Each structure stands twice: as C-alpha cells, then as structure tokens.
Amino acid sequence: MFMRIDHVAIACHDLEEKIALFERIFELTVVAREINEEQGVKEAMLHVVDGDGGGSYIQLLEPLSPDTPVGKFLAKRGEGVHHVAFGVPDVTEAMGEIGGRGVRLLDEKPRHGSMGSSIAFLHPKDVGGMLTELVQARPTDQGHNH
C-alpha cells in the first residue's frame, strides 16, 4: 500500500528561520512553497530524496493564525513533528482499505495537498498517536509506477 514516506511535517513558529536551519544543517533545498488557506498554514517542501515511488520531503508548517490546527498544535505541544505522510498509488482506495480496518478517517473524501497532490488524514488515536496523512502525488510525480 505504501510506496514511500512522502514527507515528515514539522510545525514551526517562523517558516523562514526553519528553512534556513534545514538548508544549513542538512543542505536541503526548497522545491515548493504554498499558502493553504483551507488548512491555515504557510508551508515549504524541502526535497530529501527521489525513489521509484516518488520523492520524499520535509514539510515545514507555519500557522496563519493561532486558531488554526497547526496554531493550536504549537500552543499545546510546541515546535516539532506534526504528522507523517505516506505516499500511496490511490488515496481513495487506501482510505477505503484503512477505513475498513477500523481506522477513523478525518477526511470523508480526498482534498488538495502540497504540490498538486490528493490527501487524506487518519485519526491519530487509531494509529498509535501519530497524525497520519495519505498522499497521492500529482500524476506527473509518480515515478515508474504509472
């Protein structure tokens, strides 16, 4: 079902400061920036590696305001890992399979994600306390699988 770890998302107070840190320490490069009003975040995707199943990234998230999900996360837990996203060939199919195993889905249908992907989140309490995202990459990004 999983083709790769698509990204590890890190919540931060200052996106530019964290981008500079990850560029300096890990020599990563920003390949995309977006403001996602629906999720209330300003984000940057830093490329880690490409594999047969597609790319892997570090996603840095800065909340647009304190009352957004990431804003509330920062107030409660501070900066750090927010969620882990797994690349899947078909997000709708993966939602059905995982939902059929008793895992609650936070999304009823896939929604827009970073870099033109389709995404859905799983309830953290049903997957060991980790907010988990399923990501179907934009068709041009799916490597050798299609």
Rank of each mutant, 00 (worst) to 15 (best):
D6H: 10
A75K: 11
R24E: 13
M115I: 12
I10P: 06
P63C: 02
M130K: 05
M3C: 11
V48N: 05
H82K: 05
P69S: 11
L106C: 02
P66C: 07
C12M: 09
E16M: 10
V70R: 14
P63W: 02
L131F: 04
L64G: 03
I35H: 04
L131G: 10
V31K: 03
F22E: 06
G71T: 00
E38G: 01
D52Y: 13
V41I: 15
R33Q: 12
G54N: 11
F22G: 06
A32L: 07
E97K: 15
R111K: 15
E93Y: 13
S114E: 10
K76A: 15
A75F: 02
A94S: 15
I10H: 11
P89W: 04
K109F: 01
L60S: 00
V31P: 00
M130F: 06
G51L: 10
D50Q: 07
E17P: 00
L131T: 08
S114Y: 00
P124A: 12
K72E: 14
V103M: 08
V91N: 13
I25A: 14
D52L: 15
T68K: 12
E108L: 10
G78N: 07
L61D: 11
A32V: 00
V91D: 08
L46V: 01
V103Y: 11
V30H: 00
K109G: 02
G78Y: 06
V70S: 11
A44K: 00
A85R: 09
E93M: 11
G96S: 13
D90I: 01
G71V: 03
I25V: 15
E23A: 08
V81Q: 11
E34V: 04
D67L: 03
